[in-house]
């Protein structure tokens, strides 16, 4: 555990000093300012618009951090052989993958906290003094909870990104595969529901079987999107949220375990 902690520590330190991270934070701040300006153009339901936009900005910034910061860091480790620095020490490949995931995961969590605070501030400023309509059941607790689930979905995507980096020969391929996976994870459930409801294909057709298999293999990231619930102050089902948490954590753990298995077989020539 000590070795994993040390690897996570250097990964975190290296990443937190990366200028690209500050660039992403700066972009986030500009978008939050834009949120205040754009929300001001609406004449009603400003609160909903501000919350929805604030959470979307956190999600977007998180994706940028994964695609343009975490993936290149991990890819360069393997391509530029920085990994030799770690693996020539008495550590296993499992220590390396888990430590790296924890370090980059911590970056995502800290980014979510920072961007979450900025989002909250932008929502507060947007609705302040406008005497605007705020959903009756809106709560900052629900707003925070939706940020937590959004962060969990980013951590799941990060575990998938690790999987693709360790199975691809070039990190650009891994970026493309992670982007594809992200879109599939976000849309597959909707596509399946549309096809089944319109009865374009019979439920035992090959396409439906493939879609079913994909929905079982890849996570349904839409389930972690609680933006609408937070924006409209809708009631939440605690039990389903608990299951969602277990599902998200288990999926990431399984994905990282699979990555470790593949990485152990991989030669670092």
């Amino acid at each position: 555990m000590d070795k994993i902690r040390l690897i996570a520590w250097i990964t975190f330190k290296d990443c937190i000093r990366n200028k690209a991270l500050y660039g992403i934070f700066f972009m986030g701040l500009i978008l939050f300012s834009a949120n205040i300006i754009i929300t001001g153009m609406f004449t009603w339901e400003l609160g909903k618009v501000a919350v929805d936009m604030g959470l979307s900005i956190i999600s977007f910034s998180g994706l940028i951090i994964i695609f343009f910061l975490c993936l290149p860091i991990l890819g360069n480790d393997i391509e530029k052989k920085t990994v030799y620095l770690i693996l020539s020490r008495p550590v296993t490949k499992a220590h390396y993958i888990i430590g790296k995931y924890m370090g980059l995961g911590l970056i995502i969590m800290i980014s979510s906290v920072f961007l979450g605070l900025c989002a909250a501030l932008s929502v507060k400023i947007s609705v302040m003094g406008a005497g605007t309509f705020i959903p009756p059941h809106f709560s900052w607790g629900m707003f925070t909870l939706s940020i937590c689930y959004l962060t969990l979905s980013l951590l799941i995507l990060l575990s998938l990104a690790f999987f693709w980096v360790c199975t691809s020969t070039h990190h650009f391929t891994a970026v493309l595969l992670t982007i594809m996976t992200y879109f599939i994870c976000h849309n597959m459930e909707n596509v399946k529901n549309i096809i089944l409801s319109t009865k374009i294909m019979s439920s035992d057709s090959l396409s439906i079987k493939v879609i079913n298999a994909v929905t079982w293999i890849l996570p349904n990231l839409t389930a972690f999107d609680l933006k609408t619930t937070a924006a409209y102050g809708l009631p939440v089902n605690t039990l389903s949220l608990s299951w969602l948490l277990i599902y998200g954590v288990s999926y990431s753990v399984v994905c990282i375990m699979l990555t470790v298995l593949i990485f152990q077989k991989r030669e670092l020539s």
């Binding site: 250097i10 990366n18 620095l85 020539s88």
Partner: peptide
């Protein structure tokens, strides 16, 4: 081990990387 072209985590300092290498060993 000294690789042919050593690659490091460029945002770390020499003290930090030495600490990491020693501690992990």
């Amino acid at each position: 081990y000294l690789p042919e072209t050593p690659c490091f985590y460029e945002n770390l300092t020499a003290s930090e990387i030495m600490y990491f290498s020693g501690k992990i060993s």
